[in-house]
């Protein structure tokens, strides 16, 4: 990717956004994660954090460190980033060492997967076929957001891609596995939500007291494994 294809935008006085694209696509998201790895590898000083999203990368920096260089801090860090990106190679694919594969057990259907039947009807499939389709794909964590530990997973089979619910729910239970548009996600705690609920996992995606507090990280790969009631109940009581 050419340097000119990155757009830099100030989000506030100590955070900027680097835009790589404007669509939710695996290839574009992979470029975001690759860009994050290149910036990390460049080891720029005064960099506080990188925040990958679908098609953009947030970058928080130390304003005082980057000020006083004859221009605004924003201009100074953008220049430094451009210089660093010019001299580093684009790594298109992460190495195996970079990527974790996390398996998420899911009890499909039932009280917390109450939309499984209606999703099956909308997709013209049987509920079992929906389960096979959802658990048969390999997903990647495009980004986390909305709430701590909430993963936006891409890789959903096009046959399962439905518009969001017309009336979002005020309260979706923790552990709910949901699909919406081209994405699937898992609710780390009780939250409002407009996606279709097809199952529930006994895993805890966010625990403030745990180390690490979040089960998933940006760029992780995820697979769903169907489980039954007994296995769900056995796992639900045990720690992560």
């Amino acid at each position: 990717m050419e340097l000119s294809e990155y757009q830099f935008e100030a989000l506030n006085e100590s955070m900027l956004l680097i835009r790589v694209g404007s669509t939710i696509e695996a290839a574009c998201n992979a470029r975001v994660h690759a860009l994050a790895r290149r910036i990390e590898a460049a080891g720029l000083p005064g960099l506080i954090e990188l925040v990958p999203a679908y098609a953009s990368l947030g970058l928080r920096y130390d304003l005082v460190h980057w000020s006083g260089q004859g221009s605004s801090a924003f201009d100074a860090i953008v220049r430094a980033l451009q210089a660093a990106l010019c001299t580093s190679q684009e790594d298109s694919a992460p190495t195996a060492a970079h990527t974790r594969l996390i398996e998420i057990p899911v009890r499909y259907g039932g009280a917390q997967g109450m939309d499984l039947e209606s999703v099956a009807v909308s997709c013209g499939m049987s509920p079992d076929a929906v389960i096979g389709c959802h658990s048969g794909a390999l997903y990647s964590v495009a980004m986390l957001g909305f709430a701590p530990g909430f993963p936006y997973l891409i890789g959903l089979d096009p046959r399962l891609q439905l518009a969001r619910r017309a009336d979002p729910r005020q309260s979706v239970a923790a552990g709910s596995v949901a699909i919406g548009g081209a994405q699937t996600g898992i609710y780390p705690r009780v939250l409002p939500g407009g996606w279709h609920l097809i199952g529930t996992t006994p895993l805890r995606l966010f625990e403030p007291d745990a180390r690490p507090p979040c089960l998933l990280a940006p760029g992780d790969q995820v697979r769903f494994r169907p489980i039954g009631e007994a296995e769900f109940n056995a796992m639900a009581g045990s720690p992560r």
Partner: peptide, 28 residues
Amino acid sequence: ISEPVSFGTVQLPPAGDPIVLMREHPTT
């Protein structure tokens, strides 16, 4: 599509009332 946001960002939801994001804002 969802992008990172920050303290002080002024968003405009469809209803047209701007929202200024404060300390506990979602990250995207």
